Computed example of a mutant assay.
Amino acid sequence: MLDNMVSFLSSGANIAFFLFALLAIGGAIYMISFTKVVHMVTAVAFTFLSLAGVYVLLDAEFLAFVQVLIYAGAVSILMIFGIMMTKHQSEEEEPRRPLHQVLAAVGVLALFGILFYAIREAVFPLQQLAPAADNTKEIGLRLFTEHVIPFELVSVLLTVAFIGAIILAKREEE
């Protein structure tokens, strides 16, 4: 077991993956732990940047670029603007419940144990995958040939959601 850990950590890519994964998980945990919305947005942006690092390690540079540009940049800025443009009333802090925290910790550890056991016992078939010479070209070809209808439906859905959010914001203002 120790030999496997040493051989795993002997590669720089594995160490970088481990660090990016820990940073992404840490950012997600901080996001659900913080109470101030600005801190939550910062934690989410940190998670998005960590995921972009994982994409770089997977030789998906285009996805990493899109992750940084759209999610870490645009979505985080949009969330901050949304926070600044809305009114917030101070809410009373919920009382601490130590029994709930202990039960949550036990549940998390049990879930981790189950997942660890399942992954260790799983048999993954080995496949030879020949990566495309140009990832961006392949994504574009697949997106605009095989998946053009879902792509257009998502764009319509996002437009409708955006218009609905504007209408709801205008109603709250009045």
Rank of each mutant, 00 (worst) to 15 (best):
A105F: 13
A74D: 06
F144S: 09
E92A: 06
V68Y: 03
A28G: 03
I77F: 04
A72F: 05
A60D: 03
N4P: 02
I15H: 00
Y117M: 14
V37M: 11
I70S: 05
E92F: 06
L126Q: 14
E121R: 07
E152G: 05
F8S: 00
E152F: 15
E92T: 09
T136Y: 08
T86P: 00
V102L: 12
I163A: 12
T35V: 05
L23S: 14
P131W: 08
L57T: 10
F65Y: 07
V75P: 04
T42M: 09
G82T: 07
N14H: 12
L49S: 07
V68D: 07
G113M: 12
I83M: 06
N4V: 03
F65W: 08
I114R: 02
A169Q: 13
L22A: 15
L141G: 14
T47Q: 11
F112S: 12
M1H: 14
V123R: 13
L58I: 05
L63F: 08
E173N: 12
R96I: 15
F124G: 02
K87V: 04
T35F: 02
I15V: 13
I15T: 04
E138Y: 01
A64D: 05
K36N: 09
A74M: 14
S10C: 02
H147M: 11
V108E: 06
Y71A: 06
A43L: 00
A43H: 06
R142F: 02
L63E: 07
I32R: 14
R171T: 04
A21E: 04
L57R: 12
A104F: 11
F151K: 02
T159K: 01
G107C: 13
